[in-house]
Every structure is written in C-alpha cells, then in structure tokens.
Design a protein around this nucleic acid. Structure first.
Lengths: 186, 186
DNA sequence: GCACAATCTTATCAGTGTCAAGATTGAAGG
DNA sequence: CCTTCAATCTTGACACTGATAAGATTGTGC
C-alpha cells in the first residue's frame, strides 16, 4: 500500500479539489499546475492527460465552485419562511458565500466569459425573481429590469463587501439586509 | 538621432502607457514585464529600476486607470442637467466606462486590495450621494445604506454588462437607464 | 491472454520574474 | 572644465512556469 501506484486513479477529481483548496487559501495568481501536480503526488506533466491546458483546468475549477454557489442559493430559497423576504434572503446568502470564500470572487468573475442565459446561478435567480414579480402584477419589461437590477446589486455588494471598510464584522447579515432593503423594487 | 540613447529618459511613464494599452487590448493575463520592456525598446531588467516588482508595476497601472475612471465620473456630474437624474447619469457613465474598456474591469477589481474609504471613485460617488439624499431629508443610516446599495448596483451592472447576453448592443444607454430606474431609493 | 487506449514519467523547450554585476550617462559641485 | 556620484540601463544568470514529445506502465474489452 505504501508503494505508489503508477496510475493515480482519481487524478482529475483530485486536481480540481486541490485547485479549489489552493485558490481558497492563496488565490489564483500564483497557482501553478506543477505545484498542484506535486500535491497530488504525480509528475508535472500528468495533469495534461486530463486537462488540455491550464485555462481548461481553471474553467473546470470555476464550474465546480459555481455549482457549490448555486446549491447554496437554492438552499436559502428552500429555507425561506417569508416569501416577501425571498429577495433579501437570496441576497444575503449570495453575499455571504463570497464573504466566506473571499478569494473565490475575483477568480470566478475574472476567468472565462460567462453567458448569462446559461449561467446556473443567474438562471435560478431570475426564475425566482420572475415568480415573485409576476405575482405582483409587474409587466414583462419591469420583470427583466428589476431582475437585472437586483442581481447587479447583490453581485456588486458581494465584491464590495470584500474591500476593507465596507461592512462591519459585527452583524454582517443584518447589514446586508439593511442595505438590500433600503431600495424598493415595487 | 537613429542611434538609441543609453538612457531612455521617460521609461517609467512609457511603461505605464504600454501597460495600459496592453491590458486594454489583451487583458492582464499574459502581460509580461519583458514584453513591455521590448515595446519600450529597453532591456528586460530596465523596468526594475522604476518598479520594485511586477505587482508594484500593475498597481501603478491600476492607479492610472482609476484616475481616468474618476475623471469620467466627475465629468458626467458636471454635465448633468437634471439633478433628479444625477444617480442615473452617474450610473450610466460608470457602466459605459467599462463597456468601452471591458478588460479594465477584471483587472481593476482583481489586483490589490482597495480600501473604500480612500478609493477615489467611491469617495466622489458617496459625496454626491450624501448631497442628494440629505436634501431629501433621509437620515444618516439611510444615506449610508442607499449609497452602498446604489454603488453596488452600478458596480455589479458594470461587471454583468460585460457578460454575453445581458445588454443589447442597440441602445445600451437607454437600457442602463431603465434598469437603474426600475428600483427606487426614496 | 492479447491488443489497445488511457494514464503516467522523463526529458526538454521557450518564456517568465527577478537579481547581481558592471557599463553608461546626466547632474552637482569644485 | 573636470570629477564624482547617483540614476539608469545592459548583460548574464537563476529558478520556475506551461507545454510537448517520446516512451513506460497499466487497466479493459475482445
């Protein structure tokens, strides 16, 4: 068992896990394929059997984080007691996800071009938004605009919340609620 | 005159200009000090007489872009006819700046940690915001929350507008106005 | 059990950030 | 005008990176 097998057996998955951990700790800027390969106990060229190049690898990590993120959004909607506060709850978990994993933010929105129409978090968000807003008898154009406005706000606040001095450390959740609640969509 | 002078004479400034151009065209990801040095007609180690390292150089470029950005915001406020629309006008020029220079966005908000309290665009924005909102008899906490909310929205919309499929190419300005106008701050 | 495809290793390459040592020059002061 | 000094630039080097080619090892299907 102590002798290393020639075939790793699970390298692709383990590389992604290692990438996830590395980016969470040090960010993406000094991540190297060779370092991750060594972490996985494998030679420097081995990863290229699973990923065409570094860019492709990073996109795989990106996709993995995005699915974690989407899950958390879905979870917050399931646990929402008051339907009127669904936007706030969504926004809070949105912002808190990146507050928990600050280095994910710039990584996610720096690498690769995202097509909003198929971007899972946005698809989910806009579905919820459409439900809520059409129940409020808002027309199609209003739905589209308000959805984009809300999405922009949480997306922007997530980035801002990582800068120094934007949110107190005390009661971040309440602060987010206050900020998001300070504008009205109706 | 055709013989190259040993001393360049203006290298620091020209490096920043070259960096600006390079990032605007190709982004920051494959920018290298050596390439820029060659563009400036100088050996690969020359730039290190002016910048401690690559990070410091990029921060200098960042600062330069930030000042261009701030100027544009200020310009839009000066040219604002209707004071009620000042938020919209600010937001439009905010978003349009990055629509004009898409690659600046991820560069600006990826490198270096920004302290909002001294970040010129935010200082300017929040000054304007304070003026407008206090004239509307909104209390201190409301000012703070709404300012952050508006800032988040334009910041987020700027990033989103660079993704595929968010804004039509037709009348971007009108679209931005519609989105920003679809939520109310009062 | 054999052939093949998937996976991994061992070189190797060009390109990178950065530093040390030395060459060249402009500027200041005699 | 000449000397000296600090600023600037070049050359040469080092370790590290992404990536590829050639070959070794192994699981899998026939």
């Amino acid at each position: 068992m102590q002798k290393k097998a020639y075939h790793h057996g699970n390298l692709k998955h383990e590389m992604i896990e290692a990438g996830l951990a590395y980016i969470g700790e040090h960010g993406v800027s000094d991540l190297s394929m060779r370092k991750l390969a060594e972490i996985c106990g494998v030679s420097s060229a081995a990863p290229y059997a699973h990923f065409e190049n570094k860019q492709a690898f990073l996109e795989a990590v990106q996709a993995h984080i995005t699915s974690l993120f989407t899950e958390e959004l879905e979870h917050s909607v399931k646990n929402c007691k008051d339907e009127k506060k669904i936007f706030i709850d969504l926004g809070v978990s949105y912002v808190l996800f990146f507050k928990k994993n600050p280095l994910y933010y710039s990584f996610l929105f720096t690498y690769g071009k995202i097509d909003v129409k198929t971007y899972p978090p946005y698809v989910f968000f806009s579905d919820i938004s459409r439900q809520v807003l059409s129940a409020m008898h808002i027309d199609e154009e209003g739905i589209r605009n308000k959805t984009l406005a809300m999405w922009s706000m949480v997306q922007g606040l997530s980035g801002l919340s990582l800068m120094d001095g934007v949110l107190n450390q005390r009661s971040i959740k309440k602060e987010i609620e206050a900020i998001l609640g300070s504008v009205s969509i109706s």
